[in-house]
Design a protein around this nucleic acid. Sequence first.
RNA 1: GGAGAGGUGGCAGAGUGGUCGAAUGCGCCGGAUUCGAAAUCCGGUAUAGCGCUUGCGCUAUCGGGGGUUCGAAUCCCCCCCUCUCCGCCA
Length: 423
Amino acid sequence: MLDIQLLRKDLAGAADRLAARGVTLDTAGFERLEAERKSIQVRTQDLQARRNQLSKQIGVARGKGEDASALMAEVGGLGDDLKAAEERLAAIQEELSGLLLSIPNLPHESVPAGQDERDNVELRRIGVPRVFAYSPLDHVAIGENLDLLDFPTAVKISTSRFVLMRGDLARMHRALVQFMLDTHTREHGYEEVYVPYLVNADSMRGTGQLPKFEDDLFKLSNGMYLIPTAEVPVTNIVRDEIIPAENLPIKLVAHTPCFRSEAGSYGKDTRGMIRQHQFDKVEMVQFVHPDRSHEALEELTGHAEAILKKLDLPYRVVALCAGDLGFSSAKTYDLEVWLPGQQTYREISSCSNFEAFQARRMQARFRDGKAKPELIHTLNGSGLAVGRTLVAVLENYQNADGSVTVPEVLRPYMGGQVSVLPE
RNA sequence: GGAGAGGUGGCAGAGUGGUCGAAUGCGCCGGAUUCGAAAUCCGGUAUAGCGCUUGCGCUAUCGGGGGUUCGAAUCCCCCCCUCUCCGCCA
């Protein structure tokens, strides 16, 4: 959520920055609403003040045993006007807050201009894609040849966009999770947290999934939602909290499944594990002082990169252009891993600084000594998407004989196993 | 799931229709006292919004929402949460 004060002070400026990401702000509509809000609010509060004043006088008069009927008559005359004003004010404020909740974040000044993913800027490439002596298979072929990746059975049990992994593959998936969590907690200073996978609407609103993106979520009959990312429960830990400044930064990491309806992605990435309704992710979240959130974004991105480096997977870092930014983000770096089976880089992590956008929705603040509470800045990044990491390992570590070499860093997590062999 | 009790400021805890945004205690901040400290005394100590703007005034907020009333922390309805007992269960 943007600061409404900013919209009041510099509406044109905010509109310009939103235009950079392809969003048109209805400035005339906002100004009209604001003007009405102002006049109705002043009128409502004046009436309320008058009512309170008279009501107190009635109390005093009654206390003294005096006749209060004249006062009662006067306050009674306020009734209809007051009720109408209060209702109108509530309606306007609801409209205003609805508008406010639907406006995306402003891009940070360092974000490259551009309309869509084609305008994203590649910052660096790390690692060299392996040269194969044969035409490398994609993960589906590799996994199915090993008899460890089973889509038809998953469809039978559930529906499309789910997967069943067996044996060494399921084990490697688990090993990846352990490896990632251990790296972030031991080497990067994160605290591991275990969180609910079902959250309420307030939490979804806090991080920005609601009200605009309800279609992307799985909603339960009791009004709860399946989390689409650990970002939601982890970030909402600080909702409605005031954190002592000396406790910042707070760095948390969680492993959770993620559930996404993938509405609107029909026909996209239908083959394999790239786009599933359910996938696991290790997610890093940081709560930081506003002065150092952009520094923190660089660090957090480095923490995600460290996993790829340790796994020796070739990847590149891309700065999203303004038009490709997510709703809540002020700045985002995507990490894209090389997939030999597709001969392309695919997103495996997304690291974002939301600045105060989520904090304002959540009322997540910090206090420095006696100063007034101030909004914190929130960040998060995948470290990494586990399913896609498994895909990357399968494709990059495949061998001509159909086996897959276990990356060295994973071996301690797999009982020293060096490779996954066909039966 | 059944029965009961409860949700009030940073914390504890009063308040069952009227100068209650809320007693009192603790904590915290400032001052007095002291060589200094403790103790003691005095004063201050929520959040958000709005309007004039060094400050002041007003409005809202006592789990959330709705209602009754001139007036609600207090009465009514719905929901959420916590605790105790029973049932069930990993």
